[in-house]
Amino acid sequence: MSFWLDQLVNGLTTGSIYALIALGYTMVYGVLQLINFAHGEVFMLGSFAGFGVIVAAGGADVSGPMVALVILLALVAAGAASAASATAIERLAYRPLRNAPRLAPLISAIGVSVFLSHLVDDGFLNGEGRYYPQVFPADTIEIGALTISYLQVFLMASSVAMMLGLSYFIRSTRTGKSIRAVSENRENASLMGIDVNRAIVATFIIGAIMAGFAGVLYGLFYSTIRGSMGFLPGIKAFTAAVLGGIGSIPGAVVGGYCLGLTETVGRELLNEIPGVNLPNEWRDVIAFGLLVVILIFRPTGIFGERVSKRA
């Protein structure tokens, strides 16, 4: 029993990170119908900004109540760095191509993605990774058969808090409403007096803050970060967004958790079949197998609507 509970917690942990990153994919897709493949690198830059703050504060030597403060500062720095880089990417790589055929910004996105990951890996780090200082107390909590670390509790709870914050923002603020209007119909939104460019930049910034936040959580949880770290979680989060229905915000969250659980619990369930023994690396095979299956059988995802023709 305890084994399966552990798998469940692991699935929800990775799922939280996928969900946070997937939100940026789905929101940008909503306003621009663009798959922002550089989003994984926005996540990576946020992770490094948080890393910088934690190292500057003394790294693994930070202890006691200072831990909370340092992590808070790391999250703020990550959000700011990710937001700044996403704004720059939108301005330099996407906006000039706003009216170009759809393939052009997609290629531009892939170009930015490769450029940034290699810039960090080869330009600054000589291909070496960095160890995220483990500032979080390694203690665990036991609830019945379930063993869960403080870090996992923090990771899951803070992700949910961020998502609730996002949901409030999109539903109730002026900027949130302008984003919803622009994602439904850019031209009609402009006739309402909405500054479309401003709404698009706001979308990139909000998605980037979520990704930067996820970057710090990823570093704390997986300990090693590098310039290419954004690639796999980025593609997985994209899979999660497609699974949930690209363009749908609840879809990205549900898709993220589903993917996290499929990778962990799903793999172990397959291992229950006699003769099957899939090592941990198979989680990627399962994730992308799932992507192919969704694209074939339900390309609109769980919450996806049929993409409506623009008026």
Partner: peptide
């Protein structure tokens, strides 16, 4: 740009009505 024109006091009811279906 369109939003500046709205600010000056011109509103358009577009062809096909342009209702936000999800709002």
């Amino acid at each position: 740009l369109p939003h500046k024109i709205v600010a000056l006091g011109i509103s358009q009811v577009p062809e096909g009505r342009g209702i936000f279906h999800r709002l």
